[in-house]
Amino acid sequence: MSAAPAAGAALTTKATTTDKSAESTKDAKPAAALEEDDEFEDFPVENWTQEEAEVPGDNTHLWEESWDDDDTNEDFSAQLKEELKKVEAGKKR
């Protein structure tokens, strides 16, 4: 008996095929999309080098740490200003 080449499709592929046909009717449901989101598939290759993981661009500033927004010219600040004025007026009365 010869050693076989790497297995291509799998038992589960057969299962998923039946799975898909069964699910085709409820594809429209968002739940199916949510389920797919959970998948963290196995990798096709076991190992790779760190060079393959390097993304061109700025990798050191992925996260904004100082983000305070001092702009008070938007709608929420305008409404807030108005309420605070009333508090001020109330105090003076």
């Binding site: 008996m1 010869s2 050693a3 076989a4 080449p5 297995a7 291509g8 499709a9 799998a10 038992l11 589960t12 057969k14």
Partner: peptide, 15 residues
């Protein structure tokens, strides 16, 4: 080789 001989899911060689 042992691993290749102990497969459990199709598709598999005719053997």
């Amino acid at each position: 080789k042992l691993q290749n001989y102990l497969r459990v899911e199709p598709p598999l060689p005719d053997d």
